[in-house]
Every structure is written in C-alpha cells, then in structure tokens.
Computed example of a mutant assay.
Amino acid sequence: MSIRLAIVGLGKIARDQHLGAIAATDGIDLVAVASRNAALEGFASFNDIDELLASDVWVDAVSLCTPPQGRFAQARAALAAGKHVMLEKPPGATLAEVHALEALAKAKGVTLFATWHSREAAAVEPARALLAGRTIRRVAVEWKEDVRHWHPGQAWIWEPGGLGVFDPGINALSIVTRILPETFHLVCCELFFPENRAAPIAASLAFQTASGVPVEAEFDWRQTGPQTWDIRIETEEGPVVLTHGGSRLMVDGEPRIVEEDREYRNLYRHFVSLVGDGRIDADFAPLVHVADAFMLGRRTAVEAFED
C-alpha cells in the first residue's frame, strides 16, 4: 500500500521541489495539502494541519514544508496523531524542540525524518568513501548566493529562528558533517547583521576537527551572478573538490562525477523506506553547528538590506 501523504505549507520549496519528487516516487501518494495561503487543484485542501487532522481525509504521513518558526507545534500535532513526519531543513528553530520531536516519535512508534537535501547530491557519498582513506589537511567551504533570487519577499528568513544566511549555509554544513571522517567543533566566527535585520546576511566560521584539522567556511547572501557552492578538501594524497552544491566531484584535478539534481527524489525514496521499516532518521548535527555560531559569533553590523 502506498503511503498517503499530506504536504503542510505549499510555498516556493514545496512547488519547486516536493511536488515533482513525490510524483516521481513509488510507494507514496499526495492526497492533501494544508496551507494558509494556497490550495492545490485536485487535492483535498485545508487551512492548517489541525483542520487536516480533524477531517475525514486519512493520511499516513505529513511532509512539513513550512518555515522553521512554528513548525514544532505542527510536527507535534502530527506525531501525536500517529502520523509519520518528514521535516524540511532546518528541522526546527531550536535544538530543544527537535529533540522533543524525536522523543515523541519514539514514544508513538512512528517515523521522524529530519531531511538534509544537500546530502543527497550525487558526489556526497563518493566523497565520503574517498575521504575515509585519505589524510585530510584542510577544509575550505565557500557557499555564496543571491538571497533575492532564492528567497524573494520571504520575511521569515530575517526573523529570529529563520537563520538568515545559515538557511543555505546549513546545507554546506550538512555535507561536511557527512563526508568528514572526524567530528569538528566551532572555534570562532563572525556574523554580519544588516542593521535593519534580526538574522545575519553573511558569516565567517573557523572549525577544528578532533585531531586539529582546520575547517573554514564563508557564507554570504549578497552574491549576484554565478552562485558558489564549493567544498575544497586538501589531503596528503591530493585535492578533493565538491562543487555545484555537491553534485560534482573533482579528485586530484580530474572530474569524477557530474550529475543532475535528484536530491528530493532521493529524500522521498528514503522516507518510504524509513516508514516501511519503522525507523527514525534524525541527525541534528548541522543544526548544532548553527546554534554554536549564534552562541559564539561576534556580531558586526553592516548596511541595511532591502528586498
């Protein structure tokens, strides 16, 4: 039997990525949508998750595509009703709330999937396997994009809990936490806040692995023209470079992988597998690093940002 799924939050990411991925995935069918500002023709539509859960439309699972602020109550309601839950990244606005959701999912015996779509890029797992056999000397991350292109008019990203530049930056952190054979921790960072915003527009971060390998990251939301999503790893055996958000891999100066975007299709295939096996997949490591940045970061004011 296919999983009967509802999407909560029919915004840009749901329309750009989730709808097509669900349609392309065996074992899962979209049957309903809950969104304050939108409906989807041909599907049962509701104003919010409470209205959905109170209706006679049966769903087995819920995919939450809403902003992280306020998502905890939605996820908790779905889990309490015995529904499997898939969380867009970031999984929540705080660490305490995502750990509470994981505990509730375990208590209810349902699946909770905290997704990191960038981990599903084609070069990520090959890079992980390769680096397991190499001696790493340095890691440099450059993640720079144009916020006006990717988040036009989305005020929530500039509010507390919206993460600002860490909304894309957490994608880089999700890859690095996956591919490096060692854990790492934040040493210092600088956060650049527009004088009229409550979230940073740029960040410079310095991490260190357990053995002392430096991991440096530069995130910036002010880049126009070509976008930059690169991770460069210096190893004793030669350079390893992931570009285009992890979809391309260069090893020792030679191209190894160049693939199209299948990230969300991979996420939904994995979700089907998790539900079928009764498992939870809730790795919060990337969010831990973002929380550390807000705790340790020196704040620098920069010019106002107007959308």
Rank of each mutant, 00 (worst) to 15 (best):
Thr25Trp: 14
Ile28Phe: 01
Ile28Trp: 04
Asp29Ala: 09
Leu30Lys: 01
Val31Cys: 06
Val31Gly: 08
Ala34Met: 09
Ser35Ala: 13
Arg36Gly: 08
Asn37Leu: 10
Asn37Ala: 09
Ala38Gln: 15
Ala38His: 13
Ala39Pro: 08
Leu40Glu: 09
Gly42Glu: 11
Gly42Cys: 11
Gly42Lys: 02
Phe43Gly: 10
Phe43Arg: 15
Ala44Phe: 11
Ser45Pro: 07
Phe46Ile: 08
Asn47Ala: 15
Asp48Ser: 13
Asp48Ala: 09
Asp48Asn: 13
Asp48Arg: 05
Asp48Ile: 07
Ile49Ser: 04
Ile49Lys: 05
Ile49Cys: 00
Ile49Gly: 08
Glu51Ser: 15
Leu52Trp: 02
Ser55Thr: 10
Ser55Val: 10
Asp56Arg: 15
Trp58Gln: 13
Val59Ile: 09
Ala61Leu: 04
Val62Glu: 01
Cys65Ser: 07
Cys65His: 01
Thr66Gly: 04
Pro67His: 02
Gln69Ile: 02
Gly70His: 06
Arg71Gln: 12
Arg71Ala: 02
Arg71Asn: 05
Arg71Ser: 06
Arg71Tyr: 00
Phe72His: 04
Ala73Asn: 09
Ala75Phe: 07
Arg76Val: 00
Ala77Phe: 10
Ala77Gln: 11
Leu79Gln: 03
Leu79Cys: 02
Ala80Cys: 15
Ala81Asn: 11
Met86Asp: 06
Leu87Gly: 11
Leu87Gln: 00
Glu88Ser: 12
Lys89Cys: 04
Pro90Phe: 05
Pro90Leu: 07
Pro91Phe: 06
Pro91His: 07
Gly92Trp: 00
Leu95Cys: 10
Leu95Gly: 05
Ala96Ser: 12
Glu97Ala: 06
Val98Glu: 00
Val98Lys: 02
Val98Arg: 04
Val98Trp: 03
His99Gly: 02
Leu101Phe: 11
Ala103Tyr: 01
Ala103Gln: 09
Leu104Ser: 05
Leu104Gly: 07
Ala107Asn: 14
Gly109Cys: 15
Val110Gln: 08
Val110Lys: 08
Thr111Trp: 06
Phe113Arg: 13
Phe113Leu: 01
Ala114Phe: 12
Ala114Glu: 09
Ala114Ile: 03
Ala114His: 07
Glu120Phe: 14
Ala122Pro: 09
Ala123Ile: 03
Val124Gln: 00
Glu125Cys: 05
Glu125Asp: 11
Glu125Gln: 07
Arg128Ala: 14
Ala129Glu: 10
Ala129Lys: 13
Leu130Asp: 03
Ala132Cys: 14
Ala132Trp: 14
Ala132Glu: 15
Gly133Glu: 11
Gly133Phe: 09
Arg134Leu: 13
Arg134His: 09
Thr135His: 15
Arg138Glu: 15
Arg138Met: 09
Val141Ile: 09
Val141Met: 04
Val141Gln: 03
Glu142Pro: 01
Glu142Lys: 08
Trp143Val: 06
Trp143Phe: 13
Trp143Leu: 12
Lys144Asp: 01
Lys144Gly: 03
Lys144Ile: 00
Glu145Gln: 10
Glu145His: 06
Asp146Glu: 07
Asp146Cys: 07
Val147Pro: 02
Val147Ala: 13
Val147Tyr: 04
Arg148His: 11
Arg148Tyr: 02
His149Ser: 08
His151Asn: 11
Pro152Ile: 07
Gly153His: 12
Gln154Val: 10
Gln154Glu: 14
Ala155Lys: 15
Ile157Thr: 07
Ile157Val: 11
Ile157Trp: 03
Glu159Met: 12
Glu159Lys: 09
Pro160Val: 05
Pro160Arg: 08
Pro160Gln: 01
Pro160Ala: 05
